[in-house]
Design a protein around this nucleic acid. Structure first.
Lengths: 144, 144
DNA sequence: TATTAATAATTAACATATTAACTAAATCCC
DNA sequence: GGGATTTAGTTAATATGTTAATTATTAATA
């Protein structure tokens, strides 16, 4: 590993540090954390979604998601529902209040995202995304 | 923002999720957390380093770094030193025990890193790094 | 020089990540 | 059908991220 500060993990962390603050500022204006936004962002496109799938789509580990959904519930933005057929399964959905938030927050976030994207030329953006796609498809535990 | 799951932030998080577990497993074998590793990794190349610079090089926010250095000190791997000329400044260095760890951990981590790098073709890797370089150089607060 | 302003590290309060253990519920299987 | 096994969500314990407030110290300045 040549330069530690130029290693892939450090470059990924540095990129997030450069990119996320502008979004977090917007989330904060609406009393949302980054993870709460991610959950809502997914809930907005599903009438109802299985807990496990919500964890997968938001990239939030299940134990963390429990608390996040708890706080969204306390805020009146989301709710849980236990499956009647298999009481182990939990489904989550946005409340009317949670759904109403989309019209206010998304335009702001989408605009910030467009500005971000336009700050890099299209070719660089595409090859970056392509590279990230390949990295993220690498198997965690290398088979033998 | 087209596909949420294909947005830059999510791609970055997904990439980290794909890449970091293999390293964390190694860190864990030596009783180290990821952040403790990052701090040691930097301390190994500085006889002594200013607290603020340590925070910058590890990308660890100062308030978090306080606790991390505390725990490294408790483990006997690092130590603090207050500047005599300006007692507000703190310097950190690795102990003999902390330095000795490098010979054991680094080879393992370096090998894992080489394996990771070789799992992607060189051209993709380079354009990925170049893209991350550009993203991470974007200014947090856009000037007007 | 006493006062005020600026700095560097730390603490505080809250939310989240990570790993392991646990509980409840459903499925297997003899 | 009842005990062993598996599965889904949750709890627990510890470490870290995030933002704001605080403390200690130094620099600035009237």
């Amino acid at each position: 590993m040549q330069e530690f500060s130029r290693s892939l993990p450090m470059m990924l962390y540095r990129s997030l540090d450069a990119v996320m603050p502008r979004f977090r500022r917007i989330f904060g204006e609406f009393g949302l954390t980054e993870q709460q936004w991610r959950v809502l962002r997914v809930l907005w496109q599903h009438d109802e979604i299985a807990f496990r799938e919500l964890a997968d789509l938001t990239l939030i580990p299940a134990p963390s998601l429990v608390g996040i959904v708890d706080r969204l519930t306390t805020s009146g933005l989301a709710e849980r529902r236990r499956s009647a057929t298999d009481r182990r399964h939990v489904y989550v959905h946005a409340t009317a209040k949670g759904k109403a938030l989309e019209a206010k927050v998304r335009p702001r976030v989408d605009q910030a995202y467009d500005e971000l994207r336009s700050s890099v030329d299209a070719g660089t953006w595409d090859s970056l995304m392509s590279g990230l796609e390949q990295i993220s498809s690498i198997d965690d535990e290398p088979r033998d």
